[in-house]
């Protein structure tokens, strides 16, 4: 490695650093994607849970006592109010999920273009190195 670096011209060294930065960017994008996956998983779980709650609330009769746990206290809530809250929450989460889908698509596109550019760079570097060694 050291010998090849020594023999390589400055252009190759530039390319190498460029490649490194590109690789870093790629790994960052990949990290973002996996983070996106994680968060999305959580959101889908929450949506499922909220839908269950909503179903149960629909099944409760009007006079039933409903409480919401806020911090350490149980706060009594109106049934209708609780239902409205849950509905709003489901709406919000689904909107968020959609947003994340878009973001994910964006990230994947970026990832692909980065990969391509890295491959191109590698090929160019190999060509230059082969020429230098020849």
């Amino acid at each position: 490695m050291a010998s090849s670096l020594a023999t390589a011209p400055a252009a190759v060294r530039d390319m190498q650093s460029d490649l490194e930065s590109q690789a870093n960017a790629l790994s960052k994008i990949q990290k973002d994607i996996s983070k996106n996956h994680e968060v999305r998983k959580q959101f889908t779980i929450q949506v499922g849970e909220n839908e269950l709650v909503l179903k149960e609330l629909e099944l409760l009769n009007e006079g039933a006592n409903v409480y919401k746990l806020i911090g350490p206290v149980l706060v009594k809530q109106d049934n209708a109010e609780a239902k409205a809250n849950i509905k709003k929450r489901i709406e919000y989460i689904t909107a968020e999920l959609k947003r994340m889908d878009r973001a994910l698509k964006d990230l994947e596109e970026k990832q692909n273009s980065k990969k391509e550019s890295i491959i191109k760079l590698q090929q160019k570097m190999q060509a230059v190195q082969a020429k230098a060694q020849a």
Binding site: N50, V53, E56, L59, Y67, L69, L74, Q77, A82, R89
Partner: peptide
């Protein structure tokens, strides 16, 4: 019984009603 419906929501239920809820959960 105070039944946790999920997401911090609780409801006062009788034992019979609770078993119904639990059955639904079992189905899920």
């Amino acid at each position: 019984l105070l039944v946790l419906l999920g997401d911090g929501y609780y409801a006062d239920r009788s034992a019979k009603q609770t078993t119904e809820i639990l059955h639904r959960r079992g189905m899920e």
